[in-house]
């Protein structure tokens, strides 16, 4: 018996739609649960007592320890940006604009986004793995039995550290990136130092920098809450911890890249 190709096609379309629909439902559910966790974190953040010691520990964990990777990434990004725009712009004699291009790209876009992606990969993964392990070994239950709210004790400090340290790292990345660009343009390619700085300062506005930092704040919050969510609700032993960690990095990175577009469209009118 031959199956009518039209029926087969309709069946195929139907399956695809069902699959998309289920994915959409699962995604909405997850988003809802992340929002609920965000709200209870904010509630616990406002209520005393404050977890000063844990917060400082997370600031070091997320901020200070990510510094070397962020510095290296920023300096090379600034350098390659300068190299590419210099050689590219040379074709229409616009080398003088290199300083402007580097400064604007770094402060508005690459500083916050690259820092976000690095922190998602480093600190986000660590948060999900640590909380996930604590969940599957019942340490989170143990916290509850010791009359300690795990959201307050574990998630709030990571959230605060994310929101504070991402802009802090971004400021450093901005600065180092511009220095990297300067070094390549002036020291390696032999452009004029005064022109480079003049072009940088003439066109760079403070709003470029602080709008970039607003993005960084948002990325910090997103990484922390997503990674904590993935870790906090881990199920299924060591394998579950692995899945939670991967999930945290993937979802945070996607969130950064997608929200970056919308934040940019809103902030840089």
């Amino acid at each position: 018996m031959t199956v009518n190709p039209v029926i087969k096609f309709i069946e195929c379309v139907g399956r695809t739609i069902t699959l998309l629909w289920h994915t959409f439902i699962a995604f909405s559910e997850e988003l809802g649960r992340i929002m609920l966790l965000l709200f209870s974190s904010i509630k616990q953040l406002i209520l005393p007592p404050f977890e000063v010691k844990n917060t400082l520990k997370q600031i070091i964990e997320i901020g200070i320890k990510s510094m070397p990777v962020v510095l290296i990434t920023a300096v090379f990004t600034g350098m390659v940006l300068a190299l590419q725009s210099y050689t590219g712009f040379k074709r229409f004699n616009a080398e003088v604009l290199v300083g402007t291009v580097v400064a604007l790209s770094i402060t508005r876009e690459l500083g916050p986004v690259l820092t976000g992606l690095i922190v998602a990969g480093r600190a986000g993964a660590a948060m999900a793995a640590e909380l996930g392990t604590m969940r599957v070994t019942e340490q989170i239950d143990a916290l509850e039995t010791l009359a300690t709210n795990p959201v307050k004790y574990l998630i709030v400090p990571r959230f605060i550290a994310g929101v504070i340290m991402l802009p802090a790292l971004t400021v450093i990345a901005d600065f180092i990136g511009i220095i990297g660009g300067y070094f390549v343009t002036v020291n390696l390619l032999g452009a004029n130092s005064t022109v480079y700085w003049k072009r940088t300062w003439d066109y760079l506005e403070t709003s470029d920098i602080y709008n970039g930092l607003i993005k960084a704040c948002f990325f910090g919050a997103a990484i922390a809450i997503i990674s904590c969510y993935k870790g906090f609700y881990t199920q299924g032993g060591a394998e579950g911890v692995g899945k939670a960690t991967t999930g945290a990095v993937v979802l945070s990175s996607m969130t950064i890249l997608i929200s970056d577009y919308f934040l940019s469209a809103w902030l840089f009118k």
């Binding site: 640590e130 604590m134 019942e138 340490q139 239950d141 143990a142 039995t145 010791l146 009359a147 300690t148």
Partner: peptide, 28 residues
């Protein structure tokens, strides 16, 4: 959480906080 302060619980797998020293676990 107030009610839980009246409880003490020993977990089957102990569930010690592995980021803390033994005494910090006990003194938590």
């Amino acid at each position: 959480y107030e009610t839980r302060k009246r409880f003490g619980m020993l977990f089957q797998m102990a569930a010690l906080f592995d980021s803390m020293r033994v005494w910090e676990n006990v003194a938590f």
